[in-house]
Amino acid sequence: MSSQPLETDVVILDGGLATHLEALGYDLRDELWSAKLLMENPEAILQAHRDYFAAGADVATTASYQASFPAFEQRGRVRHEAQALMQLSVELAKEARDDAGGGVVAASVGPYGAYLANGAEYTGDYDLDEDGLIAWHRPRWEVLADSGADLLACETIPSYAEARAIAALLRETPNINAWVSFSCRDGEAISDGTPLAECAALFAGNPQVVAVGVNCTAPSHVKSLIGRLTESPIIVYPNSGESWDAEDHRWLGIADPVEFGAAAREWRDAGAAYIGGCCRTTPEHIRQIRESLA
């Protein structure tokens, strides 16, 4: 049963796409993560988007987080095939949106660290500088900016250099809007140690940027991080509260959707205008957010 009719004063994002796909029975132990299903079972992605809309989400974030030309080329997909798979990620989200009777499609632009698949999106430990990051992001960026998505979700950004690269790419493509969200290591700084406020300042006053905030971050840090952001709108979609053990490739801890929904009220009251979930959050987390904020 959908919670969609309940009214809230914030935009409700979706939750962890890969998390829900795994709950549906799909094995994503792969460097492409959920993007591998673009090749193997796109209907599964469509179902996951539909489930999030049914739970009350206003936004579908595409399965392109881990998608990139180099990643697909490593699987033997030539350039036009890789581009078609990225476009497919948007078409699936648009179909689910239309089935739900409305909503927003956000094309996920994951960080360079997601391609490295070594946990670097949580550390910002990169082997590319700002110019290298611009060059790496640009081919996928151009595809997604021209895909028909409503906006780009530039998410889980762990480094100041990558934030500067994203800002540069936005200047290159004035026809597309975006939100920008950072992975953070504590209540003050993003993953590479740069203060969140310093990163957010790169996007201050840019009319293309619909929101700035944090994702893929412990929920215990979110309220403090909101306080570091002086401009609105603010977007937050943290992890469930569990922690990722990169060495053993598993999640540690327990998260409760009801507690997550209750925390969303604090984030709204602190100033967040877009609220959802990231890793290990499910349609039930999104349902609890909407009902808690209604």
Rank of each mutant, 00 (worst) to 15 (best):
A84Y: 11
Q83S: 12
R77V: 07
K94H: 13
S68Q: 08
Q87E: 12
A71I: 09
L88H: 03
V59H: 03
R79G: 07
A93W: 05
A82C: 04
K94E: 10
R79P: 05
V59N: 01
L92F: 00
A93V: 08
S68I: 03
E81M: 07
H80N: 12
Q87H: 11
A67P: 13
V90F: 08
F69A: 10
A63V: 04
P70W: 09
V78D: 10
T62Y: 04
A67S: 15
V90S: 03
K94L: 14
F69T: 06
V59M: 03
L88Q: 14
Q66P: 12
V90D: 02
E91V: 02
G76M: 12
R77H: 12
Y65M: 13
P70M: 09
A63E: 03
R77E: 06
E91K: 14
R79T: 07
R75S: 01
S89Y: 00
A82D: 00
T62D: 04
A82M: 02
V90W: 09
A60I: 04
Y65H: 15
A67H: 15
M86S: 05
R79L: 05
A71T: 09
V59T: 01
Q66G: 07
D58C: 06
Q66T: 11
Q74I: 01
V90G: 02
Y65A: 13
Q87L: 14
V78G: 08
Q74M: 14
S89P: 10
S64G: 09
S89C: 07
D58F: 00
V78R: 15
Q83T: 13
E81Q: 15
Q66N: 11
T61M: 12
F69L: 14
A67D: 05
F72T: 01
S64V: 11
A84W: 13
E73H: 12
A71H: 09
S64Y: 11
S89G: 14
A84L: 10
E81H: 02
R77L: 14
A82T: 01
Q66F: 10
F69Q: 09
D58E: 01
R75M: 08
P70K: 13
S64P: 14
T62L: 09
R79M: 02
A93R: 13
E81T: 04
Q74F: 00
T62Q: 12
E91Y: 08
Y65E: 05
T61D: 03
F72R: 07
Q66H: 15
M86G: 06
